[in-house]
Design a protein around this nucleic acid. Structure first.
Length: 760
DNA sequence: GGATCTCATGTTTTT
DNA sequence: CATGAGATCC
């Protein structure tokens, strides 16, 4: 029984638990993924449960993929028929299969993302003659989403005040529009599945009979609707195995309800409860810090987490002058740790908001170091990518008015506002959506229509194109359809305007084309579903050996030997929006806790003295959460405000970090040209690196040596090739060198980074 | 009809 | 700052 080996007692209990409800409360790093995968393997191998009788739900596609691989490794063969995926993905599949019960939906329904949702809300507001200034679409969407997460239909929606009464009406109209577009939003996937279960007992019975065992990961982040789905499916056999950790609940804002854990215990009083308290991930120091922090939350069930990894490197807390400097500190430290033998891919930098990635990216780019970025401007959120997907969606589902509106005149083809209005009213009069109306023009030459004069020609052209694509899509690969669309619309000319940005956009289009071509067999429908449901973490490349930049939310479920958490300031973490509400503050603390517990070996916590927001720098205050870490766990102690720096009249030591590039980071490379040994404090980078990371005490590193660049000097650059120096600017600690390269034009380079070779 | 400009406006976290 | 909406001009 290889898959029971190496399990501790509670893990073994969980893996081999008998039938009936089981609740596993699993601390961070306690091997919950292991328990889930091994239990599935155990059920299949030992209990002779056919894989198709098992449903396993995870939070991300990536987690699902990983678990499937691990199960396959345990079994020695793929678990054929096992249903494993996200709630959304699993529900989408069921809805697609049961579309016959979903009128007016057809099985060609599309999934609308946040952008599309906003468009629909705006349309709904317009339909109801409501001012979208007074009722911002984003706010309306919050109401709508909250309702759906609570499994409340428009008819059941109880308005308690003026705004929620408006929200109720908008919600109702919004749903109508979605149906007219044959579209569902993310929440609908869950909600409509649950509605289907409740309205069609036969359908529910079918799935109850199919799934004898249900396993759920990240149970603390389920919402009411998801709970309802699980509860319905488990009626009867009651074989529901859930794993979660209330301390890692960080999606309350998305409708997740930690109380589902209590609800579960009430609903299944006989449920076995198993605590996983041994942490296999972090050092004692890191675990102790995390425990000290989370202890400040009230009303939580105490877990006694422990680890065998006694001791460990102390936690390093540093203040930078501003966010740019903070980023440089991080990158400097990463470069140094790499020199010490750590793999770049072993490191992650985490932050509260996506906007914070910017400074970090710049620091990496300046250094010429690669990084992996999760989120921010996600690939599938890019304008050009969304355009192409909108074309595909329209081909797939001509009723999709949102996609139609997006591309009807993109690229511009002479179908302006007025023509669009005309088209819309003509379509409405016939009970069509605009896309369907347009197709009529191509398929039915005699159809009476109101278009005359200038508007007619572009409409007919576009109509013929759309018809051509629809025809082609029947029986051809997605890639071919994409190619024809790109060709017909001359999309490249439109997007690639000769600027660097245009190049990039076109490259993104080509990348999407690559995705479409990757699988020759995939249907348009499956392709669209796939691109709608991927998350950023799903696309996280394992292979590239580079540090990962990601939000604390995205970090959930991941682990790294070395973790940096930046922006530990009041207003950032905890976020300013959480100040008023104790519950939200507790969630911010859990978020911090999640970040802390991602680290295996080393933890660096950073905050800045000034932070740029809205393009303006403001004084920032150290996060109160930092105070919750005991001083003995922190390198040099945990001093709230550090007297040696605070109150010093000048921040000069932060003004310009000495860039210690990888090539020059060898300590004290004092050459002939180097300045005298610093009376000045060491560079920011040097101060940041913990002394414990060094084998022995050594002199403070000197600033990098400065080779003698002179105007006219011929130099060679690794990437740019040969050129000659036009100008040398001595600036503070570094020289800026302006070089004219024969092939690449004029570049400004930082001497310490560029690593120029002198050419005779 | 379309391009370009200004202005204001607001940023958490995401399947 | 960065995006979006609205106005203005071609």
């Amino acid at each position: 029984m290889s898959f029971l080996q190496g399990l501790n007692e509670p893990q073994r209990l969980a893996v081999t638990a008998g039938d009936g409800p089981v609740l596993v409360l699993a601390g961070p790093g306690s091997g919950k993924t292991r328990v889930l995968t091994q239990r599935i393997a155990y059920l299949i191998r030992e209990k002779r449960v056919p894989p198709w009788h098992i449903l396993a739900v995870t939070f991300t596609n990536k987690a699902a993929r990983e678990m499937r691989h691990r199960i396959e490794a345990l079994l020695g063969e793929p678990p054929r028929g096992l249903t494993m995926g996200t709630f959304h993905g699993t529900c989408a599949a069921m809805l697609r299969r049961e579309a016959a019960h979903l009128a007016p939906y057809t099985n060609e329904f599309v999934i609308f993302d946040a952008d599309d949702q906003r468009q629909v809300v705006k349309q709904a507001l317009a339909d109801l003659n409501l001012d979208d200034k007074k009722f911002p679409p984003a706010r309306m969407l919050n109401y709508i989403s909250a309702a759906k997460n609570e499994f409340i239909t428009p008819a059941e929606y109880a308005a308690t005040n003026y705004v929620s009464e408006i929200a109720r009406r908008v919600y109702a109209q919004y749903q109508k529009l979605l149906q007219a577009n044959n579209a569902m939003d993310f929440d609908d996937l869950l909600m409509n599945t649950l509605l289907l279960f409740d309205q069609e007992p036969d359908v529910l019975a079918k799935y109850q009979q199919r799934y004898h065992h249900i396993l759920v990961d990240e149970f603390q982040d389920t919402n009411t609707t998801q709970y309802g789905l699980l509860q319905r499916l488990a009626l009867g056999h009651g074989n529901i195995f859930v794993v979660g950790d209330a301390d890692q609940s960080i999606y309350k804002w998305r409708g997740a309800d930690v109380r589902n854990i209590n609800r579960f215990r009430e609903q299944y009083p006989a449920a076995q409860m198993i605590l996983l308290e041994q942490n296999y991930r972090s050092t004692q120091i890191i675990l102790d810090a995390a425990k000290s922090v989370i202890k400040h939350n009230r009303d939580r069930v105490h877990k006694e987490l422990f680890t065998d990894r006694q001791g460990g490197a102390k936690i390093i807390i540093r203040e930078a002058y501003d966010d740019r400097e903070e980023a440089v500190l991080v990158v400097d430290t990463i470069a140094r740790l790499v020199l010490e033998g750590y793999e770049p891919g072993d490191m992650a930098v985490m932050y509260r908001t996506n906007a914070q990635s910017r400074a970090l990216e710049e620091a990496f780019l300046t250094r010429g170091l690669p990084y992996k970025l999760v989120g921010a401007t996600r690939f599938y959120g890019r304008r050009e990518v969304k355009d192409i997907i909108a074309y595909l969606r329209l081909v797939h589902n001509p009723a999709d008015a949102i996609s139609f509106n997006r591309i009807v005149n993109t690229p511009p083809r002479g179908i302006g506002k007025k023509t669009q209005e005309q088209l819309e009213s003509w379509a409405a009069a016939n009970g069509w959506q605009p896309g369907q109306a347009l197709l009529r023009l191509a398929t039915d030459a005699d159809v009476p229509h109101p278009f005359v004069g200038r508007a007619l020609a572009p409409l007919l052209t576009f109509s013929a194109m759309l018809y051509e694509w629809v025809t082609l899509s029947d029986g051809s690969g997605v890639g071919e359809v994409v190619d024809l669309i790109l060709q017909d619309t001359r999309y490249r000319d439109y997007i690639n305007d000769g600027t660097e940005e245009g190049e990039e956009r076109w490259a993104n289009v080509l990348e999407l084309r690559g995705v479409a071509n990757a699988d020759a067999e995939i249907s348009l429908s499956a392709f669209l579903e796939q691109v709608a449901l991927v998350s950023d973490v799903d696309n996280l490349e394992e292979t590239a050996n580079a540090p990962t930049l990601l939000t604390l939310h995205a970090a959930k479920g991941l682990e790294f030997p070395i973790v940096f958490i930046t922006g530990l300031e009041e207003g950032i973490l905890p976020h300013i929006r959480a100040f008023e509400d104790m519950e939200e503050l507790a969630e911010e603390r859990r978020l911090f806790y999640v970040g802390l517990t991602r680290a295996k070996d080393r933890l660096y916590l950073l905050h800045a003295h000034r932070r740029v927001a809205y393009g303006q720098a403001d004084a920032a205050q150290r996060s109160g959460f930092l105070q919750e870490i005991p001083g003995e766990l922190v390198e040099g102690g945990n001093h709230g405000s550090r007297p040696d720096r605070r109150g010093s009249s000048r921040d000069w030591q932060w003004n310009r970090p000495a860039p210690a590039s990888i090539n020059q980071a060898r300590p004290a490379a004092a050459g002939v040209n180097s300045p005298p040994p610093p009376r000045t404090p060491p560079s920011a980078a040097a101060r940041f690196v913990s002394p414990t990371t060094r084998a022995e005490p050594r002199p403070e590193p000197a600033l990098p040596a400065r080779p003698a660049y002179r105007t006219g000097q011929r130099v060679r650059h690794q990437r740019f090739g040969e050129g000659f120096v036009i100008e040398v600017k001595r600036t503070g600690d570094d020289d800026e060198i302006i070089v004219a390269f024969s092939g690449e034009g004029i570049k400004r380079l930082a001497a310490s980074i560029a690593n120029l070779e002198l050419v005779e």
